[in-house]
Design a protein around this nucleic acid. Sequence first.
DNA 1: ATCCAAATTGACAACGTTGTCAATGTGCAA
DNA 2: TTGCACATTGACAACGTTGTCAATTTGGAT
Lengths: 337, 337
Amino acid sequence: MATIKDVAKRAGVSFKTVSRVLNDDTAVRHETRAKVIEAIEALDYRPNIMARSLRSQRTHTIGFISDLIASTPYASRIIQGAQERAWENDYLLLLINTGGNQAMKQTAVDTLLDRQVDGIIYATMYHREVHPPENIREVPTMLIDCFMADNSLPSVVPNEEEGGYNATLHLLQKGHRRIGYICDNSGVVATFGRLAGYQKALADYGIPFDPDLTCFLGSSISRNGFLGAKTLMQLENPPTALFCFNDRMAMGAYDAMRSLNLTIPDDVAIVGFDNQDLVAADLNPGLTTMALPHYEMGSWGVDHLISLINKAQDNLDISEQHVHKLLTCSLIERASA
Amino acid sequence: MATIKDVAKRAGVSFKTVSRVLNDDTAVRHETRAKVIEAIEALDYRPNIMARSLRSQRTHTIGFISDLIASTPYASRIIQGAQERAWENDYLLLLINTGGNQAMKQTAVDTLLDRQVDGIIYATMYHREVHPPENIREVPTMLIDCFMADNSLPSVVPNEEEGGYNATLHLLQKGHRRIGYICDNSGVVATFGRLAGYQKALADYGIPFDPDLTCFLGSSISRNGFLGAKTLMQLENPPTALFCFNDRMAMGAYDAMRSLNLTIPDDVAIVGFDNQDLVAADLNPGLTTMALPHYEMGSWGVDHLISLINKAQDNLDISEQHVHKLLTCSLIERASA
DNA sequence: ATCCAAATTGACAACGTTGTCAATGTGCAA
DNA sequence: TTGCACATTGACAACGTTGTCAATTTGGAT
């Protein structure tokens, strides 16, 4: 592999001049620059990033810590969004998956600090509160799809309440007035946020909240969606529409409707949440659902992180940046509502 | 951040001695080592990886190039498998997603070479032939879930034929003798491999291959599964079991059975392919399906890559290692067969 | 031709580590 | 006590780049 000195020798200049050309320093005569560029191309020279960052103290690398990369498939879009935005800014992602193990999180942060990353993304695969290792603060850090209770690290998460609001609003606008909400009771942030949005939308339409129309069941698997939907539809005065906590539960609700011989969307409208690629579109009829802004959280998070890195580089204080950004979920309209 | 010289000063030794301690060099007196270790801990010293690899020419980093990380969700398990095995061997993954763009692939390889990665993983999100940029050969490289026609780069892929064979075998063992095969005709490797396995299993049971029982339709979406299943079940002598190219098509087949008032698995058994997390388990009844060895390809690939890296380091010839490893798909038994 | 400021270029240190080799210390045999 | 082999330690170069600052060249005004 050719080095900067090889290029210098071939171009007949000092290696510092080559360095100037490489760094777009204007203080190089036009013809000198041409000679250098010729030599660079002739030797297929590429700067050694190790050596460069040893001196400049910037690695142009962002550490990406995730808990369970493969557990909720669509969430890999966070990584995609992060990687693409990083790439646009000449950064690369160094990936560590902790599998949710606490000791592993600490080691992950240590390892990334060892590698002199310029910043760290700490992402979870569903929206929740986290307690990252303290020394993560040694470099600019951004939480994605998670947050600290005291907001002492900047974070970006989906706007669950707005999502629940818009999902319900969609049903209200279609004329529905008795709308059920089927969710898990695992106590995750999303459950309550979406519930609050649901209640707010009803209130805005002057509809009193009827506790009988919401049901909380265990975890958000299709079986519980099935049970919940069945329960609600067998009420004396059943709802005409169902808002399901997520697409899996909606999938169960589809089964329930079939077992009750009810047609979607004619007898009952259904709205899900997550826009889980290979579920929502492939159900029959296609499921109308709210898409979580995974890709957007990834790219927004990296954008913000890079601005923090640049500020830190200029010795500006970044400790006061208690950003907690909420990103909008978008309605994907299909045939179920 | 403390450097090796700070540690040396505090321990009252030369920085070279500290270097020895860090590298487990035995040529250090016991008590000297103790002093050094005390100093390292007192200063919370961590070696600077940049400086280290500048000298040693090894970065302990593996570049991971993927085409469409988020398009087929379950495939993020390749990344997970790769990352975990890399981690166990003190390697980290530098991630680049090309989005299937050809120019981007070239830039990705260039960028990784610039970063002095010790090796490269080139992964695709479905099993197919690839033509990676030629200069990828400058470092040890491993293809995952893809291959070169001339096998001039080592690769690891799923054993599609064996998978098709075992899926069919499962149905045969359940007593089925008329088994349909529903697949896409997009011409991907998997289509033909699974078909070959299907035919081989039939042949092993002495059942002649009946072309009427296979149908090829467009892409592998649920709609086509629906159409295919309906067509096959309306034959004069319909099959008693269906082998579906993937879980999405199986999902469509479920719909077809419902529309024909047929019960799964009593009237017809169904086996899918992919074990797509949030589909297969959540269907009703649960879908029996073949799981692709994504995680295993990731970890096997990294394992093999690291052995190549070590050989290259010792200047052993690795160009002759035309490995093309086939990994077994495993049957996930649920209720549909 | 001469001078001066600005433009251009180069010499050398520095980044934090490892590699090489020489210098010093140690313990045991003579 | 001396000598020698071996263990231990240190001085210094090297890795390939950027940063600092001084040296040299250039071009225009005199």
